[in-house]
């Protein structure tokens, strides 16, 4: 499968934080959910992909091109929704259309206004009069209207009500029907990712903890809830993390079928992405 985005050994050091050897690949036709707690390095990684931050080591290839050498060619085919970064709020959607028309070869005015209509957004009011949800919708409409091949979305559904979120998720699914395209989607709303993501990449404290297909994660990984006595019978190589709660031990296992064969447990629960994040971050290593 051809990759639309390849991040190799991306490292960047700040005073209080560092990205450490971040590597992952996003194949064409796929949606990758990019998860991790606040400050884990999701936005910094997206900023590096876009060269918003620059002095980093490692290589980033987009559409098979080096992101630093072929900036102009690459950006023509990228759509972005970035957390808290957008057009100055004294502008109107009409202004945005006029600006984008002169900035992107493929800008489709008709498509942009169709999105605005579908989202019920006014065309001639300043962005500062918009609610957070309306603003987010405008950002999404702007990102989609020049037929990008790669969407980089940092918290695109934050601030949207469930109905609007469902609309937006549908839009992303339609977008990905073109198998030449792909989406890297960072979100804290993991239920959305469970619906639409094909891959999950999990970053914590600047390092990638895992990058796998969603099915591989949700079908194979599991949580065993057991007593302390039972927990002590589990061999360390058979679990990844564990967490002691008030009433039981929660143990994260990589292959629930194998685990059930090996240990006399009745139930190994399916995991959610939330469970996975909590156990990987708060749990103790084997």
């Amino acid at each position: 499968m051809e990759n639309i985005l390849e991040v190799k050994n991306l490292s960047k050091t700040y005073d209080n934080f560092a990205l450490k050897d971040v590597s992952f690949n996003l194949p064409k036709g796929m949606i990758m959910g990019f998860i991790g707690e606040n400050g884990a390095g999701k936005t910094t990684t997206i900023k590096a992909i876009l060269n918003i931050i620059q002095n980093y080591s490692g290589d980033i290839e987009i559409f098979g091109l080096n992101n630093r050498k072929e900036d102009g060619r690459i950006k023509e085919n990228i759509g972005v929704v970035l957390d808290d970064m957008f057009f100055p709020e004294i502008l109107t959607p009409n202004d945005i259309n006029s600006i984008m028309k002169s900035s992107y070869k493929n800008w489709d005015e008709k498509r942009f206004y169709t999105y605005l209509k579908d989202f019920a957004l006014p065309t001639n009011k300043q962005i500062k009069t918009f609610s957070k949800g309306m603003r987010k919708k405008l950002e999404i409409a702007t990102a989609l209207s020049h037929y990008p091949k790669l969407l980089l979305l940092d918290e695109p559904t934050a601030g949207l009500d469930p109905i609007a979120r469902a609309e937006v998720i549908d839009l992303f699914q339609n977008f990905i029907e073109n198998e030449e395209c792909a989406i890297l989607l960072s979100s804290h709303i993991t239920t959305d990712l469970e619906h639409i993501a094909d891959y999950i990449t999990f970053i914590n404290n600047g390092s990638i903890l895992l990058s796998k297909t969603k099915d591989e994660l949700l079908d194979h990984y599991g949580i065993v809830k057991c007593t302390e006595k039972e927990f002590k019978t589990i061999h360390k190589k058979d679990y990844i993390r564990y967490r002691k709660t008030k009433y039981a031990y929660e143990v994260l296992v990589e292959d629930k079928k194998e685990f059930k064969k090996k240990y006399p447990v009745e139930v190994v629960d399916k995991i959610t992405l939330d469970d996975l994040m909590v156990l990987m971050i708060k749990g103790e290593e084997a």
Partner: peptide
Amino acid sequence: YDSYNKWDAYLVSFPDG
């Protein structure tokens, strides 16, 4: 206005921004 709305960072996502 550019810096208040972080347009100065957003513009980097444009071709030769």
